[in-house]
Amino acid sequence: MTTELTTLLVEIFVALLILIGAGFTLLGSFGLVRLRDLYERLHTPTKATTLGVGSLLIASAVFFTWREPGVSLHEVLVAVFLFITAPVSAHLIAKAALHQRSPSRSGLPPETLLEKHDGHGAKPRPDAETKQKPSQPG
């Protein structure tokens, strides 16, 4: 195989990965604006963005391996890190939202279940005080 052909093939491969990656990154943020409640919105960035940035990082690894002497793999580090952390962030945000009783289109789980999940030591909800006020003797 001639070097020109290899160069062209690598270039097309990297270009495709860049387009796929950037496309999914955009899709993740687009879902953030388009979907209707917080819990739906949580789905898109965690999934689309990890794959999007993942593809971009693979593109970068292929590009630098081809362009410079030696193998360049440190991009994998960022990709793996994002893959590990994205679900954790999503879980923590969802937990915070459930704790605040952030409204959901499909309705929240029953209150008894949510209270069990709040556990002890959790900060009282913002609306907890206002709910207790009517019970005070006037």
Binding site: H43, T46, P87, K116
Partner: peptide
Amino acid sequence: ITLTPGTLSASLSP
């Protein structure tokens, strides 16, 4: 569960 299709783990009981 969070990474796979259509599901998101929202809360783990204490």
